[in-house]
């Protein structure tokens, strides 16, 4: 539990690994997860992210998952985990840390605010692709939420905070209530691909209707939380209506895994109404309508003449 986590590394400090003597210069705090803090660091003019934890067992458990995933990676894929060691904090105590690839990006909500909601379908697809890779290797992300998705240029997506990653079949290691299937009485807390897809569905609602989603969590009695309540928000939201059918499937566990779900998502993307702002000008629509009518008339005329 992240109760009394006091370590505070300041800009310019150089930390040295106790076992492998790797030296890292602290640049700034990037974020705080359930198991520790993440800093931007520099080593030999390369940027990395350093995660330092308070509890050696908790952090090692997370590292074990990362190492298992790394072992499964095919050649040519980017390395994610670079170093695992202990450091001496300013208080003289030892803290475990690991070094991972630094992902330059903004959080999902900020990205859509800055770049526009028209990026949402593509970012969603890329996110489903990331999940599909994990699922394929036998893992479930677990703690999927807006804060744990970083988006870089042109909608590239990275998952951060692997503290919730769980092997399929075990109990989800870490989750956030409003994204949790059990919280919405939508199923168990066992790790399966459908668990992530449920969270993905809540994430879509969080992006489009954050206030109404929050409203549900405060108004509803625990026994009345349901997929139906989530669907009501989705169906009455302009941004979500085009994907409402997809969401219902995700909440109902109807997709086998993220691969399956992303195939269905891709189909949606090629329907014009998925994009909130339709790119087709009015006159073009009119032209299409006119030519359709003309075609109809000529077919009718042809058929009539043939008879």
């Amino acid at each position: 539990m992240a109760t009394s986590f006091k370590i505070d590394l300041r800009r310019g400090m150089v930390v040295t690994g106790k076992w492998k003597q790797g030296r890292y210069r602290i640049e700034k705090l990037l974020g705080e997860g359930a198991n520790g803090k993440v800093y931007l660091v520099q080593r030999d003019r390369n940027w990395f992210a350093l995660k330092v934890g308070s509890d050696a067992v908790d952090l090692q458990s997370e590292i074990n998952v990362l190492q298992s995933i790394a072992k499964q990676k095919k050649q040519g894929q980017e390395t994610f985990l670079f170093d695992v060691d202990d450091l001496y904090g300013p208080d003289g105590k030892e803290y475990p840390f690991y070094i991972m690839r630094y992902v330059l990006g903004t959080t999902l909500a900020d990205y859509l605010k800055q770049q526009g909601a028209e990026w949402f379908p593509l970012v969603g697809l890329n996110l489903l692709g990331k999940l599909a890779k994990l699922h394929h290797a036998g893992w479930v992300f677990g703690d999927l939420k807006v804060e744990n998705v970083l988006v870089a240029d042109y909608g590239h997506v990275e998952l951060v905070d692997y503290g919730g990653v769980t092997a399929v079949g075990k109990g989800i290691r870490q989750f956030t209530e409003i994204y949790d299937r059990g919280y919405w009485n939508g199923g168990s807390r066992s790790a399966d691909a459908k668990y992530d897809l449920f969270s993905f569905g809540v994430l879509c609602i969080q992006l489009h209707e954050p206030k109404r989603l929050h409203g549900l969590t405060t108004e509803l009695l625990p026994q009345n939380r349901s997929v139906e309540e989530l669907m009501q928000v989705a169906e009455s939201s302009q941004g979500l209506r085009p994907i409402a059918g997809w969401l219902r499937k995700a909440f109902g566990g109807e997709f086998h895994d993220a691969g399956d779900a992303s195939a269905a998502w891709r189909l949606l993307m090629h329907r014009s109404d998925t994009h909130r702002t339709s790119g087709i000008p009015g006159w073009l629509k009119g032209l299409v309508a006119v030519s359709a009518v003309l075609l109809g008339t000529s077919v009718y005329w042809l058929v009539r003449n043939m008879l």
Partner: peptide, 18 residues
């Protein structure tokens, strides 16, 4: 103490604990 183990040994022990 588990903390006193080098990282690779610690990984083994934590795997058992988990």
């Amino acid at each position: 103490s588990i903390e006193a183990l080098p990282p690779d040994k610690r990984a083994e022990v934590v795997r058992v604990i988990d």
